[in-house]
Design a protein around this nucleic acid. Sequence first.
DNA 1: AGTCAATGATTGATGTGTCAATCATCGGCT
DNA 2: AGCCGATGATTGACACATCAATCATTGACT
Lengths: 159, 159
Amino acid sequence: MESRFYMLLYRLSHAQRTVIRPRGAALGLGSGQPKLIDYLARKGPCSQKQLADYFEIDPAAVCRMLDALEKGGFASRSVDKNDRRTGTIRLTDKGSQAAAAWQQAAEDVEQQMLAGFTRQEKQQFAAYFRRAYRNLKPDSSFGREPALPQEETQTREKE
Amino acid sequence: MESRFYMLLYRLSHAQRTVIRPRGAALGLGSGQPKLIDYLARKGPCSQKQLADYFEIDPAAVCRMLDALEKGGFASRSVDKNDRRTGTIRLTDKGSQAAAAWQQAAEDVEQQMLAGFTRQEKQQFAAYFRRAYRNLKPDSSFGREPALPQEETQTREKE
DNA sequence: AGTCAATGATTGATGTGTCAATCATCGGCT
DNA sequence: AGCCGATGATTGACACATCAATCATTGACT
């Protein structure tokens, strides 16, 4: 019986990915793209930096996945008029539909994964996740608004 | 506050990877290689198929990681005399040392992740992981001996 | 024996992720 | 105004994972 937590986490994470990947693929999405359109569908248009921050992935990865999403007709990029460095990402209609379908798929998988869990067990499981996460990232803003960049309190008097 | 389990799992998995990756990199290992030498150190020499089965990854990925491990001097491949399709993977001394160092790193990270968890909470957390995993992979052999491929009592009197 | 399906290992193509470097823009500073 | 560091986006190089296809070997069945 496996008892190391890194293996437990590895296996569950891997199993979830394996189960959900085909659902995204059926929509014409790669394995990383669904979460982006999910975010866009939930929170509305945003910049690439917001996506990278929220999912804690490299902006380069976001950039390439958006290339793919744009090519697939799921999203569009436009330049922010106030800050021309920043792009604004929007879902197309096709993207919105795919997001809805994927949200359903994610819900299905969650139901399957947590089948037999009582409401309290789910809450406890989630609480464990959050505690463990905060232990690994004590400085993180997990649970707070990711849209607030928190600007470092400015004690940054570099020399 | 994030409440979807796929995000909780995503974030914890990602955080763990982020914390542990530099520890492997310090040993000259990529992000996927430590688990292989860990397995080899714990269970002894084995075939590539065993590694692929145990970690539930594509044999192609194992093959390429072993290329890297071999090139780095961590492991060696040799051909099984009974079945020349099968290769036997062995750790070198350098590989064994790296495995020991990595096991320590993994333990450190686990300690950090589960800081403040009581023994019972850890057990319950682990039990939730196993239940969720089994829900996603009901046919799996999670928890049984993966090293015993179940067949072969196999009377090796073939010569 | 000799064909043939199954198996272990490998290679190619593609998507995701990291790290490092670059480019364009912005904003503060003198 | 003009430098100059910070920032958002992008690109290149590499590692890991999947899928598909191939190769060599094996074992089973005529």
